[in-house]
């Protein structure tokens, strides 16, 4: 099912949650709505679901106007942030809920319901938990049951609100990959909301960055990361060093011996891995010092400061591969030269 949002706006009192959102989501996409908390991404998801009504604008499913359609008739599956499993029902009954409460004409027989539910539980690898109650499950298990429950009604669109937000780091990692693989098998149009850029990059095939009720950029994870449209996207997705060429940074950069060859704006954003660091032999040219470094596994993060700044000045972060760092034989306190390999320019 393809989804088109046209000119969606929504206010809560004086607060403008969504400001003229336009978005097209093709059939079969796995899309992340990414943004800081309070940016309106959850509201947008709920409007797509029909759990919330937009003040203006239209929601189209496969070209069909769904704006005023009830949540029950939209053919969506919704996974709530805190799962919203029915506490008084077993796992089996939770998953069967949507099938059992279909109108009599459309309701499958109890035997088919049993078969379907069993298959779904097998799909989420939790068939052995059918008779448990939600209270007896771990967070990750609840999450998967909530997903199975949403899938039971064979939705044309699957919507997930911060699906991994309440989980432990290790479970989260595992479920992210699992969701991605599940999507590859089912091919159902899927939209999930997250504030975690790493999660969006890892799971989604397409990312929509939302801020203050507006879409900042839409694109594949690599586009978003490598070609950010604006200052916000560049800062929000991945780490970056920000240099203002016109403000006091200009003098600072000059004295530090950092040169931008070809300025294309007033603000330069430089990703840490786009700065290469070399040890200076004669130590007179540069005033940049390696203050500290941290081992992050495959890469090493370097904290660089200007010598005379005494910690009060700017800190520049650079990253280099583990083995390159070992070859460079850098130590804390070493004077270094920096080479900017690539920068994003904004005005």
């Amino acid at each position: 099912m393809s989804i088109v949002l046209s000119d969606i706006s929504k206010k809560f009192g004086d607060f403008c949650a969504l400001d003229h959102i336009n978005l097209e989501i093709p059939q079969g996409e796995l899309l992340a709505l990414l943004g800081p908390s309070g940016c309106g991404k959850t509201t947008l998801l709920r409007i797509i679901a029909g759990l919330e009504r937009a003040d203006t604008g239209k929601v189209l499913f496969n070209g069909q106007d769904m704006t005023d359609e009830d949540v029950r008739n939209r053919g969506i599956g919704f996974v709530f942030q805190h799962y919203a499993l029915f506490r008084h029902m077993t796992v089996f009954d939770n998953v069967a809920f949507g099938l059992r409460f279909k109108p009599a004409k459309l309701r499958p027989s109890e035997a088919i319901i049993r078969k379907n539910v069993k298959e779904l539980l097998a799909l989420v690898h939790l068939d052995w938990l059918a008779d448990r109650y939600p209270d007896q499950l771990s967070g990750g298990q609840r999450q998967r049951i909530a997903l199975a429950r949403a899938l039971a009604v064979e939705p044309a669109v699957l919507l997930l609100d911060e699906p991994f937000g309440a989980l432990d780091a290790s479970v989260r990692k595992e479920l992210r990959l699992w969701l991605r693989h599940l999507h590859q098998n089912l091919h159902v149009t899927t939209i999930f909301v997250t504030h975690d850029q790493e999660e969006a990059m890892e799971v989604a095939s397409e990312i929509v960055v939302v801020n203050k009720g507006k879409v900042e950029q839409k694109g594949t994870p690599s586009k978003i990361y490598d070609e950010p449209h604006n200052d916000f996207v560049s800062r929000f997705v991945g780490q970056t060093n920000v240099f203002h060429l016109e403000k006091d940074d200009a003098h600072w950069l000059k004295s530090a011996g950092i040169v931008f060859d070809n300025p294309q704006g007033v603000t330069a954003h430089v990703r840490p891995h786009n700065i290469s660091v070399e040890k200076q032999i004669n130590g007179t040219e540069s005033a940049i010092v390696l203050k500290d470094w941290q081992h992050l596994g495959a890469i090493i993060r370097l904290e660089l400061v200007k010598d005379s700044a005494n910690g009060a000045g700017k800190t520049i972060y650079a990253e280099m591969p583990n083995d390159a760092f070992r070859h460079s034989a850098l130590k804390r306190g070493d004077k270094v030269s920096l080479f900017i390999k690539h920068a994003h320019w904004f005005n």
Binding site: R46, G50, L51, E52, R53, D70, V71
Partner: peptide
């Protein structure tokens, strides 16, 4: 907590 407009 958000209050829903779709509750009957």
């Amino acid at each position: 907590m958000s209050q829903s407009q779709i509750m009957p």
